[in-house]
Simulated assay, not measured.
Amino acid sequence: MARKLSAAAVAGVVASIAAPASAAADFAALNEVLVADYLLPRYEALAEAGSVLEAALRQDCGAGTLAADTSIAAYHRMADAWMAVQHLRFGPSELFLRADRIQFWPDKRGIIDRHLGRLLTVADPAALDPQRFGQGSVAVQGLPALERLFFAPPEGADPAFACDVAVAIGANLKNIASGLLADWREGPAPYAAVIRSAAEGNAAYMDAREASLQFAKALRAALVATTDLKLDRPLSTSAKAVKPRRAESWRSARSLRNIRINIESAEALYRGDGQGGFAALLRRQAGGAEVDRNIAAAFAQARTRLEALPDSLQAALDQPDGWQRLDDLRSDLRGLLALLSGPFSQTLDLPLGFNSFDGD
């Protein structure tokens, strides 16, 4: 399990953020909180979800059933855990195409359908060898391919081999998730230690502020991905122009569930899971209290809108005022993104720039 801060340590970290101190000490304390109480627990949850998914698929496929309730529930648990870290595109996530292998999306050219169809048609057991599978097409290795097998299985596929493919995907996701966690907290140079030692300078970061900037960019990335990819692409510019099948995870009817988790995780990153995150640091700066109030209000407004919507974007669009409600959510999130890119960035002197989701 991740090293949770003791009560005394938490008090010390929060005090270091709440009391006058140098900017370097502020950022170092912030990084410690975010690593210990935000990042590591979420990667632990991802690794645990991967193990549960792999075990469920082996058990259900061993009994001859691909889309059994246990496997479906495990799929949703894995997807939930991934949505909570989807925006953390730095460090171990950048290695070995891990993020794309977990979720190859958006797939604008239909690569998943083609590659998955070819895999099922050829039905070569050797292609499912763990090493070969993990080094093959990223399009068939992760959650989108598994979603298709569960909720929109290709016609003509041999059910037994489709089950074998699902088991291979489950094992692959388990390996990727466990590898991510191991690289963050284990070995001679775990990435958590790299961030914690940023104050002294290291090969990855010049100082603690640069490491904090990495987290701030991830915070912005969560909002960019939500507005530009998860809402703009399916909603378009009017109710008559919607393209609901551009939505993320539309086959499993969880497009808005994904967004709900994205926003919850982004807000937790901003607040530091209650242990003194960016919000506390922001309030210490001149004019920062007002910026924090505006950001908190924007998050609250987005949460309220999401709580009133179903998990499925299509189900929301089927409601008489569905498109307008989703467009209002999109506007709220754009306003929140403007607060992060403007007053938040300027007050903390953290230039956010671009990230991996810009321009997708």
Rank of each mutant, 00 (worst) to 15 (best):
A126R: 09
E147A: 04
A218K: 08
R148D: 01
D183A: 13
F161E: 02
A166K: 00
L146Q: 02
P190L: 05
G136W: 06
Q135L: 12
G117A: 10
N175K: 12
K174W: 01
A171I: 02
A157K: 04
K174E: 06
K174V: 01
A182Y: 08
A198I: 10
F161I: 05
D158A: 15
Q131W: 07
Y205W: 06
K174G: 05
Q141P: 10
I176H: 05
A168V: 05
A192C: 11
N175H: 08
A157P: 12
A177M: 07
A171W: 00
G201K: 09
I195S: 02
F150V: 00
D183T: 14
V140S: 02
V140L: 00
F150M: 04
A145P: 08
Q135K: 13
A139Q: 02
V122N: 07
A189Q: 11
A160E: 09
R118A: 11
F133V: 05
A199H: 10
E186M: 11
A139M: 01
V122H: 08
G201T: 13
V194H: 05
N175T: 11
P154S: 01
P144H: 02
M206A: 13
A211Q: 07
G142N: 04
V167I: 15
Q214A: 15
L181N: 09
G170N: 06
R196T: 11
I195C: 08
G179W: 15
L128N: 04
D207K: 12
E186I: 07
V138W: 00
K217I: 12
K174N: 08
T121H: 11
T121Y: 10
C163I: 00
G136T: 03
Q214G: 14
G170P: 07
E210P: 10
G179I: 13
Q135F: 07
L149W: 04
R118L: 14
Y191L: 14
S212Y: 00
A157S: 15
A123T: 09
G134W: 01
N175S: 15
C163V: 01
L180G: 09
I176T: 09
R185S: 10
A211K: 05
A182R: 10
A208I: 14
A208S: 13
R220D: 08
D158Y: 10
